[in-house]
Every structure is written in structure tokens, then in C-alpha cells.
């Protein structure tokens, strides 16, 4: 599904990703953990195509295609979804409009007709119930005035509606209370499928109790320095990152 080889990326002339390697096969859920400032969000942004990053070398393949050659909107339509660490508020752009526009953009890309407005609303309402979101949020501006946790739920709602092939969730668990964490995890779990992959960026092993990952990777100073199964997350929780710092140097 996703293959990253020797990825080097810089922002404002400063190299952040320094030879990152990552392989996420179809159907798997991988967790990426690492200290603050290690480059996790940078990786997520580079994958989604955010402007401002310079790729100095390396390659990224998504479903066998050269991901870096695609514009951000093309990546999305091809099935890449980024759940933002800090979802932006867009007052005046209605939540439903955005959802519908996003779904239709992908459908058009795949030669499908637009969604039926009624069926679409029914689907969105169903997903909202799953996310325990109040329906009134639909008619509000995108994330406008949403609490931190509501914004994260809204990201997952979008993911559930878009049904991406690859979801990169950047600290979707941060700022969630226990109940919300369960709701979000449940939402993510309903989407697990043989033809879908997920990359969860997280600081906490707690999320991984609810969403059990196939692999855990440690990102330090722009590189994956260690990979393992879910027990690696437990080990990190106990020992922190210091013991891995040497490997990053």
C-alpha cells in the first residue's frame, strides 16, 4: 500500500526527514511513535502533499504509484486521508458541503456519478451517531467553534465517510477524554479492512490498547530507528526514548 524509501525532506532549508524508510502493507495498521519534534507531522504532511516542504531525495509509492508526483487533491481522490493534528477552523464553509464536495471529488475522479443527496445525508447521519456527534454540527462551519475533542471526532467522521485506502492519523488521540478515545478508536476499527491501511501517529500506548497495531515504528530525528510489534509500544511507555537516541545518531 505505502512504501517509503530513503525519504529526505526539508522545510525552510532545515532537513527534518533524514532517510526515512517505511513499508505499510495493505490491510495493516501501523503506529508511528516518537519524541516531540522528531518529524512525525512532517511525515504526515509530506505524504498529504502540503506545500512548503522540499523533498531532497527518496521515493514514496502509494498503491504502486509515485505519490510525490501527485497534487494534494489527487492524492486525496486516490484514497489518501490525513487526519490533522490541528484541524483548521473554516467558518462559513459548511461541514456537509465539505463532506459532499470531498466525496463527489473522489467519485468523479473514479468515473462515478455524484452521490444522491438523500442517501448521502442518511449515511452521514449514521456515521455521526457512531461518532456520538450532535447532528447540529453538520450545519456549522467546518470545525467552527468545535472543542478540541470535537474537531478530532470530525476528522474521523470525514474518514468514515470518505473510506480512504490509506489513512494517516496524526495524533488523533491527543486531547481526547477516555470516552471520546473509545469512540474514536471504535470509529477507526470499523474501517479496518483487508484493502485498507492506516498509519497512526501517537504519543500514547493507550490508543493502541483500543486499536491494536500490526507494527510499531519509532521515529527519531527524521528516521525510523526501530520497528517491532505492539510490545514495542509498551516498552517505550516504560523506558521512554533515551535508550534509542544513540541509534538515531
Amino acid at each position: 500500500m505505502l512504501t517509503i524509501k530513503n525519504l529526505h525532506a526539508a522545510v525552510d532549508g532545515k532537513e527534518i526527514l533524514k532517510g526515512l524508510e517505511l513499508e505499510v502493507p495493505a490491510g495493516e495498521v501501523h503506529a508511528v511513535m516518537g519524541p516531540n519534534g522528531s518529524g512525525k507531522s512532517t511525515l504526515a504532511h509530506v505524504l498529504a502533499g502540503r506545500p512548503g516542504y522540499t523533498i531532497t531525495s527518496g521515493a514514496v509509492h502509494f498503491k504502486g504509484r509515485d505519490l510525490l508526483a501527485l497534487a494534494p487533491e489527487e492524492r486525496a481522490r486516490e484514497g489518501l486521508f490525513l487526519g490533522f493534528q490541528y484541524p483548521v477552523e473554516i467558518p462559513g464553509v459548511n461541514n456537509v458541503y465539505l463532506l459532499k464536495a470531498a466525496v463527489n471529488a473522489a467519485r468523479k475522479h473514479h468515473g462515478l456519478p455524484e452521490v444522491d443527496a438523500f442517501e448521502f445525508l442518511t449515511l452521514v447521519r449514521e456515521k455521526m451517531r457512531l461518532m456520538r456527534m450532535d447532528e447540529s454540527m453538520l450545519s456549522r462551519g467546518v470545525n467552527e467553534g468545535f472543542s478540541g475533542g470535537e474537531k478530532k471526532r470530525n476528522e474521523i467522521l470525514q474518514m468514515l465517510v470518505l473510506e480512504p485506502a490509506l489513512a494517516v492519523l496524526d495524533e488523533t488521540d491527543s486531547g481526547l477524554d477516555i470516552d471520546a478515545l473509545k469512540v474514536v478508536a471504535h470509529g477507526v476499527n470499523t474501517l479496518r479492512a483487508a484493502n485498507r491501511s492506516m498509519v497512526l501517529v501517537t504519543h500514547y500506548q493507550r490508543l493502541l490498547e483500543y486499536i491494536v497495531p500490526d507494527r510499531v515504528h519509532v521515529l527519531i530525528k527524521g528516521r525510523i530507528v526501530r520497528s517491532g510489534d505492539r510490545t514495542l509500544a509498551l516498552e517505550l511507555e516504560q523506558r521512554g526514548y533515551d535508550w534509542l537516541m544513540d541509534e538515531a545518531a
Binding site: P72, E73, F84, V88, A101, A102, A105, L162
Partner: peptide
């Protein structure tokens, strides 16, 4: 905001207009 909309698949012109 613009990038957020693009990341959801909206065409740049549509995102700007929105």
C-alpha cells in the same frame, strides 16, 4: 484552510472559491 480543503480532494479553484 486552503490545504485542508485540498487534502479532502477539492480542486484548487473550488477550494479558493469556497
Amino acid at each position: 484552510m486552503l490545504f485542508y480543503l485540498l487534502s479532502r480532494g477539492l480542486a484548487p479553484e473550488v477550494a479558493q472559491h469556497l
